[in-house]
C-alpha cells in the first residue's frame, strides 16, 4: 500500500470521528441543560399522577415549528431538550454527508454512488416522517 491513500483514509476517519464527537457532545449538553431548566422551573410538577400522565400511551408531544422556535426564544426547557434530540438525529446524517465529500475527493466513483444512495434514503425517511 502506498503512503498517499493511507493518509487520505486517515483524514476521512478524523473528519467522521470529529463530526460524531461534536454532534453527540453538543446534544448531550443541550438535553442535560433542558432537563435542568425544566426541573428548576418546576415544569414536570411534583406528584405521582403527573409521572403516569407523562409516560402514558396517550401523550403526544407538541411538535409544531412555531412551538419549537418560540420555546427556544424563551429558553423553555422542553424546547431545549427537543433541540438536543434533533441534533442527535441529524448527526449520523452529517457523517454520511462527510463520507460523500471524502469519497468524491478520492474520485472513488463506486463509493460516491453507494454513499449518495444512503444519503438519499435518509432524506426520504425525513420527508416520510414529515408526511406522517
Amino acid at each position: 500500500m502506498t503512503p498517499s491513500p493511507g493518509r487520505k483514509v486517515g483524514r476521512i476517519e478524523d473528519a467522521i470521528s470529529g463530526v460524531l464527537r461534536t454532534g453527540v457532545s453538543t446534544s448531550l449538553v443541550l438535553i442535560s441543560a433542558g432537563t435542568l431548566i425544566t426541573f428548576v422551573r418546576g415544569g414536570y410538577g411534583g406528584r405521582g399522577p403527573e409521572v403516569a400522565r407523562l409516560i402514558g400511551p396517550g401523550g403526544s408531544f407538541p411538535r409544531t415549528a412555531s412551538w419549537f422556535f418560540g420555546g427556544l426564544l424563551h429558553l423553555d426547557g422542553q424546547a431545549v431538550i427537543v433541540a438536543g434530540l434533533l441534533l442527535l438525529v441529524v448527526t449520523p446524517v452529517t457523517r454520511v454527508a462527510v463520507s460523500l465529500v471524502a469519497f468524491a475527493a478520492e474520485r472513488d466513483r463506486t463509493y460516491v454512488s453507494i454513499t449518495a444512495l444512503v444519503l438519499l434514503l435518509l432524506l426520504l425517511s425525513f420527508a416520510l416522517g414529515n408526511a406522517g
Binding site: 460524531l20 446534544s27 433542558g34 409516560i55 434530540l85 438525529v89 457523517r95 425517511s125 416522517g129
Partner: peptide, 27 residues
C-alpha cells in the same frame, strides 16, 4: 447510528418521542 436516524425521524415527527422519557435515556 445512521440506521436509527432514519426511523427516529419518523417517531419524532409522529410525536412519539417524549422529552421527559427520552432525555434521561439519551444522556
Amino acid at each position: 447510528g445512521v440506521t436509527a436516524a432514519a426511523s427516529a425521524a419518523v417517531y419524532l415527527m409522529r410525536g412519539e418521542v417524549l422529552p421527559f422519557v427520552a432525555a434521561p435515556v439519551a444522556v
